[in-house]
């Protein structure tokens, strides 16, 4: 509850600031198993950017073949079974409602600190519905996977080489 207050206060301070760049929803692929509305697509896009903000000052530029939200929704649409996909969409709707009811504003209009507080609350509050938590954890896990399978991350952080042409069995750890 304390955290919720904090978020509301921060919301007042930062009112009017557009903090999350948006993705043009007109270019969204069709996710035929999810049947999402445009505002829901936008929310997932905003959420992935809040979970794992990129392009900040001093931060690496990570280019990927698709925006994170496209990847997240493609994976849920294509690779999850029908039950989990339904649960994800149900959780998304609860998330929309939760933000609206609790913070009296849209997700987009919250600032980064508020986002972190909000997401942490959804993750940790045991009284919240399971599908809401499932929606958040799935979106987070897939966002992380999108990031950690990127060329930047694999080459710079996982020592990935496409065709190393060698195997050294005992080298000093760098």
């Amino acid at each position: 509850m304390k955290r919720r207050k904090a978020i509301q206060n921060l919301a007042l301070i930062s009112a009017g600031m557009a903090l999350l760049p948006g993705c043009d929803f007109e270019q969204w692929p069709v996710f035929e198993n999810l049947m999402l509305e445009k505002d829901q697509l936008r929310l997932v896009d905003q959420l992935t950017r809040a979970i794992l903000p990129q392009g900040g000052e001093g931060m690496p530029v990570v280019s990927t073949p698709e925006p994170t939200a496209h990847f997240v929704l493609r994976m849920v649409n294509d690779c999850y079974d029908a039950r989990d996909a339904r649960r994800y969409v149900a959780g998304l709707k609860l998330f929309q409602q939760y933000v609206q009811d609790t913070y009296k504003t849209s997700f987009k209009s919250l600032n980064p600190q508020q986002h972190v507080l909000l997401l942490t609350e959804v993750q940790t509050d045991e009284h919240l519905p399971k599908s809401l938590k499932y929606f958040l954890s799935t979106t987070k896990n897939l966002s992380v996977r999108h990031f950690t399978t990127s060329e930047y991350f694999m080459k710079n952080h996982l020592r990935y080489e496409f065709a190393p042409g060698r195997y050294l069995g005992c080298v000093a750890e760098s």
Binding site: I51, L52, P53, H115, V116, L119, T120, R159, E173
Partner: peptide, 23 residues
């Protein structure tokens, strides 16, 4: 293998992910 720390949200998560060090 290189462990990846995916704790947190926002900038904290990003910094955790980028902080790959010891295997």
């Amino acid at each position: 293998s290189i462990p990846v720390n995916s704790e947190g949200f926002g900038e904290e998560l990003l910094l955790n992910l980028l902080d790959t060090g010891a295997e």
